[in-house]
Design a protein around this nucleic acid. Structure first.
Length: 579
RNA sequence: GCGCCUGUAGCUCAGUCGGAUAGAGCAGAGGUUUUCUAAACCUUUGGUCGGGGGUUCGAGUCCCUCCAGGCGCGCCA
């Protein structure tokens, strides 16, 4: 369904055309300050500017015509400031819309039109390495973007581009072969943890720095792997399977799923052809024994070549990424490919996207969704005391542990199983929300007390607002007073009206969050919604109210709960019935 | 050296592609519970939006410049 903002934009643009003959957007936005009204028309000022006219009289003319056009929706619009037109919605209009929004599976959010096909590349951990806190942001942000785009109706194809190929395998494989035939058995029998595989890699990597013999052995293994030696490939496959199994446990816990997990190895057979094609098209050229793409016409990339084949003949991740674009374009025909990685890879993606355009993919939209680092309380990249990255599993364990301590302190009487489930949902939600609620381009400071706090813009605060609503319905059901059927909505108290109007603004938050792939706009909206609900909750008794207020308030509660639940779901966060 | 990003209240952060008097939370001060979960709510103190120029009706937002911090820049990913 059409959102209120869209409706006003459409009507106001029509009035502007008819009253002053301008074919321009009305530029309807929510009022920055609620005292002016609910929405404002900002489009008059640019029109006046273009015509060299005084904006006030133009605005007066439009406002007068708008009064008639919006008679059912709003009070007569007023002109203010330099030439703004302020619109105050009528309670009757807001009230009449709420049941329809509640009945709408999308809760009033317009369906995407046209529907786009979007490939989404995120998470991408390395095989043979434990997932750590560094993988968290890509995974969580990517998942939220996928959920939001799908909610709008787009066709989203998620692909976990895992690092299962490359020079690190020389060290892993040679390390395993040192252990001997036992290694195969260990992997087959699940006796080896990813941590242990990682240790084998590290040990061998460090040894190689000092010992040329080890280095040479690693190189040999890599050559054997790339040339398809059956034993080596078999061992490599086992390491990969083992790693993916371990990662999948974490994904399950995080409730993140992928349509595909084509690792880098999937593209290995295509790389030679990619380089040949780029050379044939004149996009790439030989340079110092290697193959490079140069960008002399782009100032920022002028002295920054893009290396796609090393002088020793090996390929790089740039080559793989190019092959990946080609594959995705051919397999899925996406209108857009989105990469969710940390901002340090910005240059790489600039080069990659520019190369893809020159190669022959000028129409596809390529987006690099970047994010900053996770910092510790000391404002430095977060690490354990010994300087290791914090393992994701440990992080999630601690989140649940801390949440459980709070549940025990607050609601000790609940059954143990219920408390554990609450702790799981609250702890995991807190971790995800802390990440998503910030503008992703900045680094963010990881803090347990802040993310688990009950006041402020946190997951527990939102989950608690939901719990309070559910509690009302539980109580209401006991006394048979939970019906909201057949009654119309009445918005007499300012807190009711304020909440009701804000419920109609869910589509605006989704649109903002989608424009630049910024989930924090959803968080911000949900937090404001929970705050407005709290005011309503304090001021307006629900079950004790007389009809028709009771049914009306129940409907407000129900819709608030639905929007909170759906909004959190778009962030990959669950709700619980009590906490 | 070149390039990218960031700089907003004591702290952690928002700020809807240029709109009206820059907003939250924490911390500080004061208050609210015979009432649906007080894990809550209300009131209040606090800002030259890093500095300086510009662009225009209008700038935290755009341009230039300087300062500070972070990150990245041919054979890792």
């Amino acid at each position: 369904m059409e959102s209120v903002e869209q409706l006003l934009e459409r009507l106001a643009a029509g009035v502007i055309r008819d009253s002053i003959g301008a074919d321009a957007p009305a530029n309807v936005r929510p009022c920055g300050n609620p005292k002016f009204g609910d929405y404002q028309v900002n489009g008059i000022l640019p029109i006046a500017k273009a015509r060299g006219e005084n904006p006030r009289p133009l605005a007066e003319k439009v406002a007068a015509a708008l009064a008639a056009a919006l008679a059912d929706l709003a009070e007569p619009p007023t002109v203010a400031g330099a030439g703004f037109i302020n619109i105050k919605l009528k309670p009757g209009f807001v009230a009449s819309r709420l049941p329809a929004v509640l009945a709408d599976p999308r809760l009033g959010v317009p369906a995407a039109s046209p529907v786009r096909t979007i490939a989404l590349d995120f998470s991408a951990p390395n095989v043979a390495k434990t997932m750590h806190v560094g993988h968290l942001r890509s995974t969580i942000i990517g998942d939220s973007i996928a959920r939001t785009l799908r909610f709008l109706g787009h066709r989203v194809i998620t692909d976990n581009h895992i690092g299962d190929w490359g020079t690190q395998f020389g060290f892993i494989l040679s390390g395993f072969k040192k252990i001997g035939p036992a290694a195969k058995h260990m992997l087959g029998g699940q006796e080896l943890s990813i941590g242990q595989i990682e240790q084998i890699y590290r040990k061998n990597f460090e040894d190689a720095e000092k010992d040329p013999v080890v280095r040479e052995a690693a190189k040999m293994e890599l050559v054997k792997l790339q040339s398809g030696d059956p034993d080596t490939v078999d061992l490599w496959k086992r390491v990969c399977d083992h790693s993916i199994l371990a990662a999948n446990k974490l994904y399950k816990r995080l409730r993140v799923e992928f349509d595909h997990t084509f690792g880098e190895s999937f593209y290995h057979p295509m790389l030679e052809a990619v380089v040949a094609e780029l050379k044939a098209k004149g996009v790439a050229e030989n340079s110092e024994g290697a193959v490079c793409v140069f960008f002399p016409d782009i100032p920022q990339l002028k002295d920054k070549p893009f290396l796609i084949k090393k002088s020793d003949g090996a390929f790089l991740y740039a080559t793989t990424d190019l092959a990946t674009i080609k594959y995705r374009v051919e397999a899925w025909q996406p209108g857009e490919i989105i990469y969710v990685t940390d901002s340090r890879q910005k240059l790489h993606f600039q080069q990659l996207f520019e190369t893809a355009r020159r190669w022959g993919h000028p129409d596809i939209r390529l987006a690099h969704v970047t994010f900053g680092s996770v910092l510790g309380e000391d404002n430095k990249p977060i690490k354990t005391r010994s300087g290791e990255p914090i393992k994701l599993e440990q992080l999630l364990n601690e989140a649940e542990k801390r949440a459980l301590e709070i549940v025990e302190a607050q609601n000790a009487d609940l059954p143990a199983e219920t408390k554990r489930e609450i702790a799981r949902v609250v702890g995991l939600g807190a971790v995800k929300y802390a990440d998503l609620s910030q503008n992703r381009i900045n680094d963010y400071v990881f803090s347990w007390p802040k993310m688990l706090a009950m006041q402020g813009n946190t997951a527990p605060y939102l989950q608690y607002a939901y719990v309070r609503i559910r509690s009302i319905f539980r109580k209401g059901a006991e006394s048979g007073a939970s019906s909201m059927d057949g009654k119309s909505v009445v918005l007499n108290d300012p807190a009711e009206f304020d909440l009701a109007k804000f419920l109609l603004r869910f589509p605006e938050a989704i649109e903002l969050a989608t424009e630049d792939y910024r989930p924090n706009f959803i968080c911000s909206y949900l937090y404001d919604l929970a705050c407005k609900f709290s005011v309503f909750y304090e001021r307006c008794p629900v079950l004790k109210a007389d009809e028709p207020a009771r049914a009306s308030r129940l409907l407000l509660c129900q819709l608030t709960a639905e929007v909170l639940r759906k909004g959190l779901d778009l962030l990959g966060i669950q709700t619980i019935e009590q906490m």
